[in-house]
Nucleic acid binder design. Structure first.
Lengths: 329, 329
DNA sequence: CAACTGTGTGTAATCGATTACATATCATTT
DNA sequence: AAATGATATGTAATCGATTACACACAGTTG
């Protein structure tokens, strides 16, 4: 590896001058500048960013912590983040918690030790150790998807999205609306969306029923199984609609209904959340809610870059959403 | 930030001893070890990996260069890579070329300057500057998806996959088989898959026809448009099957056929490649080929880790595939 | 008992950059 | 002519770790 010292020697100058040329600051004569640049080109010299980062305390890297890499949501968000930060010559250091809370904390520390300039966390839960680890890290930090106390957060408007969707089903004349949700460890998806559903029903004085409610685990299969349970438990008196809190589980539910010859939407309307590509191309096309994940990723990146420039108070941003009505209702 | 020196001072030892404790090498008495560990815990000291990396020339980071982050293929591959490298405590530094050849080269240099321990490139093209940049980088390097000269490569068996799929269509009685491909800049997809199609037809002495051939750009829309052109140009005498080189374009093609009331598969069979989630849940379910992208990612990561341990000659691995026959044929 | 081996710890160089400070020249201003 | 300011370059400390080498002491061996 050639270093800045090698370049300096070859050009008969001090490494200070080389550094000045490379970073374009301070005074350097044109003649010397050209001489140095020529040697840099010839040798194919590439500065060590580890050394630079050690000295400057800046790495040009931002850490992203994902719950799971291979989901459409995650990849959209990362794509949005990348679009923004790449423009400012930052790279992304990716970590995947595999939905493990311990790893969330572990990775925050790891990213810190790697001197990332900031962290974007797609949080799936909230707990005290997490919060205090974030505080301890003392790094620009953005939470996406959960509102973390003390941390600038971008959240999806899960509650109102859910209310809107339920209202819409009701306005279509449905009175027996089933629900497939997830556990409460994930407050945004597990609590907010469920609350929206119940509140809407209550407001319209419609009945709820335990046998209409099931919880899945985000997978397509769990949607299938949940739907199965709902159908089995209500044979002869099926609900006429089902609101599923994620598209993937909704797709699973649809699959089961199709197998059973239960027609969508005539016998049972189905609605999801997420606006996955899948939702658009299944038959019938799935009614869903677009959360604009990529935009959220961009927003997160922009906020982070702002924070890099100047420290800010915690802020909370609510991402807009859009209900997409398709053939499944 | 507390540093190793702070710890050393607090523990009344030299930083050498602290380093020994932290890295678990050399002799340290139990008493001192405990004393140091206690202080490390209390202070929440986190070692600087920049400094470590500067000194040891190892970063614990591997660079991944993707053509596009938000595709299912990419996210599966990355997920596979991560699964393997995370187990060995490596992280992934992600870069996205947005299909720009210049950026491929730029990012190799960038990753090099960041002292990544190795690079995995999801290549979409082959050119001399790319090859020579890789050589110049003198880093453990894996190419995934294209066979790069001098670089250990994992390739999908595009040619035989394509032959198999075409053979299968022929065995179903199809004699007029249309084709939607992509440009030749991407040799694997653009050339190999096309060759397989033509060779299979030739072998079975079946006709080809320019009006049956269209090229898209990987997008769903381009599949739609290509299908449209094929249908328009062959009105009254449509081909009975269409082989599309990617699932997404195939989905687009199916959409157009559906709009036109051309029944799948009765009027026109459709086949894709990629085994996207989409392919499984569209109606009718799409016949496709599974390339086991996640496995390929894992394999790439394993090869890279091997190369980290000892330099190896170029090798070439051919990834297996599996034809998944579904309702669209 | 001299020589050796195994333990435990410290000194100081080193990795490759940045940057505060010093110095030197030259043109311009007063 | 002295003072000032702009330009150009160099010296050396510094960032936070690792590690070769040296040294001291203990126990073991022949």
């Amino acid at each position: 590896m050639t270093t800045i010292n090698d370049i300096a020697k070859l050009a008969n100058v001090s490494r200070t001058t080389v550094s000045r040329v490379l970073n374009n600051n301070g005074y350097v004569s044109d003649e010397v500048r050209k001489r140095i640049m020529k040697i840099v080109e010839e040798t194919g010299y590439i500065p060590s960013l580890s050394a630079k980062s050690l000295r400057t305390k800046k790495s040009g890297v931002i850490g992203v912590i994902l719950p799971k890499i291979s989901t459409e949501t995650a990849s959209r968000v990362v794509s949005g983040i990348n679009e923004v930060v790449a423009g400012e010559n930052f790279q992304i250091l990716l970590t995947d918690t595999e939905l493990n809370k311990e790893k969330e904390i572990e990775y925050i520390r790891l990213l810190q030790s790697r001197h990332v300039d900031g962290i974007i966390l797609l949080a799936t839960n909230i707990n005290d150790r997490l919060i205090s680890t974030i505080e301890g890290a003392a790094l620009p930090f953005i939470s996406l998807g959960q509102d973390l106390p003390g941390v600038t957060s971008i959240v999806y408007d899960d509650y109102h999205a859910s209310v809107d969707m339920t209202n819409m089903l009701i306005s279509q004349g449905h009175e027996k609306i089933a629900f497939i949700g997830v556990g409460e460890e994930d407050p945004s998806v597990g609590i907010e969306r469920k609350k929206g559903y119940f509140d809407s029903l209550e407001k319209h004085q419609l009945p709820t029923n335990d046998s209409w409610i099931q919880l899945g685990d985000f997978s397509i299969e769990s949607g299938y199984e949940s739907m199965k349970k709902i159908v089995k438990r209500n044979e002869g008196n099926l609900p006429t609609a089902v609101f599923v809190v994620t598209d993937r589980m909704a797709i699973g539910a649809m699959e089961y209904l199709r197998e059973q010859g239960i027609r969508i939407p005539q016998d049972m309307a189905v609605a999801g959340i997420g606006a996955s590509t899948l939702s658009q191309y299944v038959t019938p096309a799935l009614t869903t809610i677009d959360y604009f994940n990529k935009e959220a990723g961009k927003k997160a990146a922009e906020l982070l870059l702002q924070q890099l420039k100047q420290k800010k108070e915690k802020e909370k941003f609510i991402q807009t959403y859009r209900l997409i009505k398709r053939d499944s209702v």
